[in-house]
Design a protein around this nucleic acid. Structure first.
Lengths: 167, 167
DNA sequence: CTGAATTTTCAGAACATTTTGAAAGTTGAA
DNA sequence: TTCAACTTTCAAAATGTTCTGAAAATTCAG
């Protein structure tokens, strides 16, 4: 396979992955492009490579910077901004976990806590309370698991954690 | 809080969670409704409670059955079909992991394998190969971790696994 | 069989998200 | 300052997704 073909396929795949993840396609494609680019790219270059508009490029680069997946890099003597991706894969994963946890898990935990104060003792209410309690248990576990992952470093993850998992 | 208010909030929250998950809002709401319902509900009842159309109800119930999150239940003497949700939360989670892994992870793994045969020895190709290799490592780990989770039972998960995690 | 009850399908409508591009805003070298 | 280079914003357009409702298909009691 040609290098260029490989790169294109990767950008497509990463984009699709993103879209199954609440990350928008273009944002993921920009990320992919920067990931496999040897040197920092300007907004202009990103626009041209991915064939997207200026506004679109700007928005998504901004979002990637918010997520901590991309950094701005200024070249001395150049007015333009250049961008590089975080290339340490473990960091990339941590950053993504942080965002997804915030968006997916935390709001649910808030509602569950809120809901736990349903009064009444009807059998119906009991059943409801049971389901909520059960979900709550898993939500708490998931929360602390992810929290631990986010705080851990790669060696611990790839070494200790996965060894424990697989035994 | 009133029971009904709690139920409504839960259905809303579960719907929102779903939509951050590639599960569509209505599908998640139908699931929520069935989860907290004491007895099986008919399509009719689901339509009325959630104020959705017949077609919509049908589609999403079908999808939930595909995922293994909802079961059809026939009452003797009744022509109508009734539906119940899988209420064992650990099972629910397993079923969701299975689907998400299939949709999110597996296609990427396929592309990564495909892409690994990029020829060329330019420094550019080297860099590309490095990034892909790195992602591949994590993808494999994630795959086997999820595979193990799916095969494990609840006690192992809540007991052993999480204790190891937190230590 | 027949036909009423029920489920399924699907084209178009409604809604939601993403993208564009032009205009407004910002920046810094001269 | 000034002004060209560059970045940001945002309303409208394009695209993508979900939902509706009526029609077609299926099912089964009589």
């Amino acid at each position: 396979m040609e290098l260029q073909e490989g790169k294109d396929k990767f950008i497509q795949a990463w984009g699709t992955l993103g879209s199954h993840w609440g990350i928008n396609r273009t944002m993921a494609q920009v990320h992919a492009l920067l990931l496999i680019s040897e040197n920092p790219l300007s907004a202009e270059e990103i626009m041209e490579t991915l064939k997207i508009s200026r506004g679109n490029a700007n928005m998504n680069i901004r979002a990637l910077i918010d997520w901590g997946l991309v950094f701005k890099e200024l070249k001395p003597g150049e007015r333009k901004e250049f961008f590089v991706a975080e290339k340490e894969m473990w960091e990339v994963i941590r950053k993504i976990i942080i965002q997804r946890k915030k968006k997916e898990l935390e709001p649910v935990i808030r509602v569950l806590n809120d809901i736990s104060n349903v009064e009444q003792n009807s059998p119906e209410a009991q059943e409801f309370a049971r389901v909520i309690e059960d979900i709550n248990l898993f939500a708490q576990k998931a929360d602390s698991t992810l929290e631990a992952l986010v705080k851990s470093d790669q060696n611990w993850f790839v070494g200790t954690f996965l060894k424990n998992m697989m035994k």
